[in-house]
Design a binder for these strands. Structure first.
Lengths: 235, 235
DNA sequence: ACCTGAACACCGTTCAAGT
DNA sequence: ACCTGAACACCGTTCAAGT
């Protein structure tokens, strides 16, 4: 296989940057200043290039963010898979979750249309594992896709909600103090007895990580529903 | 209780707008031009007032969006509750889901910290119903909160993902055409056999509404896990 | 081939001044 | 009491022109 761009054939002005350099600088910027500060202008300054040069490498800002996530996702290690199909689903889902949880800023891009389709084969291997696990457990391909989609919704929701409640790294000190904590102890205890009883315990309870247990319960429910239904949904 | 502001006592310049008028205009703007076009400047123009006047009624843009959602949520009708606790949870969750699905633009505000705490008693009644249903089924209060949180993650995730894939009302025609549909038929069929087999069927499968079935499976899984565990999680 | 500054069309937010 | 324009400090994106 010949080098795609032989040096002798190259003509015109040489590139000042590359896709890899852009992605690296973007990650550096996010780590240093927080993801809210990732703008094309700042990114160009970080790279020491003109802002508009970035448009040779990314279509627009959304494209930059999606590339950032899919790059990260495609570097995910494949976890060891257990024999049990149900457990394989759990392991793959947790791997997806953990990979995305490392990018809590990903919120905006995570729900972009066609996001899954832009993942590389390495990241899709996790999707494949979940679908294959469901089929191995006795699901039809349609049901297996539903299993994946349901897990995907749950995983995305957990990450988006928790990313904004947990990570206060980049909030002003003042805003943090003013922030009214979620508490139900001043609520009408006649109308909302259980919430009133929980009262100011809610924030403590809500800070616990329940993803793995929730996932297990969900997968159990999905698999038993799928294989119990004698007549799969018509049409 | 005396009227909070007797007319005779009022002094100074009279208000040009009210919170209710602002909310109404914001909803009108979103309905007409799409939620991406909701800006404080446009909203002020819609109302025929100065932009900065809005800052007397909302703290900032996020506050405006949260107020918009909580207003909407607090007008939710209470659904009829069945006798079965499990079914009560389902009915309340679907009510929450449907109320939020009517505001697909809500994404940004839905995951704001302390969002639940800003809901009024009418909207919280649905949360109460879910927690109460779980307790009636045999959960501890802690487990009941976990049940709610898990349902919340799933519901938020479903709405955020589907809001961006389904609703193409406000996309340019061109962007829609260029959009690469999610399809796996050109994937490596050795590495990803199940996805390759599904191929271009994925978009069709993914467009089906699976929330109610997924919810039922999840609730079943959550309730049976909670009441099967002989030893609830320590600490 | 590739890069760029200038310009366009916007944002949210602050604040001193006006009525 | 309440409202406001002007200004600040930014955005993403386009495009004609430069090397």
């Amino acid at each position: 296989m010949p080098p795609p761009r032989p040096a002798r054939t190259r003509t015109g002005r040489p590139p000042v940057t590359s896709r890899a350099q852009i992605m690296e600088a973007a990650r550096r910027l996010i780590d240093r200043d927080g993801w809210e500060k990732l703008t094309l202008r700042r990114l160009a300054t970080e790279l020491g290039i003109g802002t508009t040069t970035l448009y040779h490498h990314v279509r627009d800002k959304e494209d930059l963010m999606v590339q950032l996530i899919t790059d990260h996702a495609d570097r995910m290690p494949h976890p060891e898979l257990p024999d049990n199909p149900r457990e394989r689903i759990i392991v793959a889902a947790i791997a997806i979750h953990d990979a995305l949880a490392a990018l809590p800023w990903a919120a905006e891009a995570l729900t972009v249309d066609g996001f899954l389709g832009r993942l590389g084969d390495t990241a899709l291997w996790h999707v494949e594992t979940i679908v294959a696990g469901a089929v191995a457990h006795g699901c039809t391909p349609e049901q297996a896709v539903d299993v994946f989609r349901n897990i995907w919704y749950y995983t995305v929701g957990e990450i988006l909600v928790r990313a904004r409640t947990a990570n206060h790294r980049h909030l002003d000190r003042e805003k943090l103090l003013n922030q009214q904590k979620l508490r139900f102890d001043n609520r009408d205890s006649t109308q909302l007895p259980h919430l009133a009883a929980i009262g100011n315990q809610w924030p403590t309870l809500a800070s616990r990580d329940i993803y793995p247990q929730g996932l297990r319960a969900f997968v159990d429910g999905l698999l038993s529903h799928a294989t119990t239904d004698t007549a799969p949904l018509s049409r």
